[in-house]
Design a protein around this nucleic acid. Structure first.
Length: 282
DNA sequence: GTCGATGTTATCAA
DNA sequence: TTTGATAACATCGA
């Protein structure tokens, strides 16, 4: 679930509390967490201090003094949170960074898809996951948005999910964005007119900022940097609501596989084809 | 117990 | 270029 709004919420909740704190001890409990990074590099972080916490797409970037950056990808079920060392360690806790006082920064991930990568901050733009990301949604003008999408073929929803085109949108928010824009997830981008692009663009900005305001969506495992749940799950209009009534027209929400992911949408508000004009023959 | 699905994405084949 | 399948893994619900 960690999409842009969730990762941004983790960032905002974590930064003020770990900024200027030192790493006193490193306890890696599952070596597979490290990606393209040596254990010695991780252990060498003892004595480093956190400077800031950034986000790029769905990744978290923890900048340290001494010029290194820790990149966490939460994937499906990863959690990065600050806690007290008195808190019992879960069997899915894969990394524990002891900070000063009783504070610990922990990475927990039941499914073990998430990872940590450490690299020099200066090489950020050439490092693997970051260098292939498209622009941030909030940095895009409508013109840029249109030209990014127009350069590709295919259905709109799978394109919104592509991180190399636009960074940060995942399955939940793609569905919510398209619902608000009244665009069917399978609509070919080649058939979108300017007004429809405009609606998707406005909807993207609106949904993402609203989801950040509500501190993200907790479907199951997502937690912010202090272990708190989000609140946006109560505002979802279509995601996970198959068979329930569309909030606007009352039609049953449908679910369909689009680009090998589940897509939830209202078949009436999000039509694939415009209605044929009424027939006069009778 | 089994089966199918889950918010992500890299990789490979067609 | 695009798509679909697969894989990484644990958990949950039917």
């Amino acid at each position: 679930m960690p999409e842009l709004p969730e990762v941004e919420t983790v960032r905002r909740s974590l930064e003020p509390l770990i900024k200027n704190r030192d790493i006193c001890q490193v306890d890696l409990r599952w070596p597979g967490l490290l990606k393209e990074t040596r254990l010695a590099t991780l252990q060498g972080l003892v004595g480093s201090r956190f400077l800031k916490v950034r986000r790029r797409g769905k990744t978290l970037l923890l900048d340290l003094d001494r010029g290194q950056t820790m990149l966490f990808h939460l994937k499906m079920t990863g959690q990065l949170f600050l806690t007290s060392s008195a808190e019992p360690v879960d069997k899915h806790d894969q990394l524990i960074l002891k900070l000063d006082s009783p504070l610990e920064l922990r990475f927990r991930d039941p499914r073990k898809f998430g990872y940590l990568m450490i690299f020099p901050t200066s090489s950020e733009e050439i490092v693997n996951p970051l260098c292939r990301l498209g622009p941030e949604p909030n940095s895009l003008t409508l013109e840029q948005f249109i030209s990014l999408l127009r350069g590709h073929k295919g259905k709109i929803k799978p394109l919104l999910l592509r991180q190399d085109i636009i960074a940060g949108i995942g399955n939940i928010y793609a569905d919510e964005i398209l619902y608000r824009a009244r665009i069917h997830p399978e609509k070919p981008v080649s058939q979108l007119n300017r007004a429809e692009f405009g609606r998707v663009y406005d909807s993207m900005k609106c949904i993402l900022s609203r989801a950040i305001r509500y501190r993200g969506t907790t479907v199951r495992t997502y937690r912010d940097g202090l272990g708190a749940q989000g609140a946006y799950q109560r505002r979802l209009q279509v995601y996970g609501r198959e068979g329930k009534k569309c909030p606007v027209c009352g039609q049953a929400i449908e679910r369909k596989r689009v680009g090998s992911r589940s897509a939830f949408f209202c078949p009436r508000c999000q039509r694939l084809k415009s209605m044929s004009p009424p027939s006069h023959s009778r």
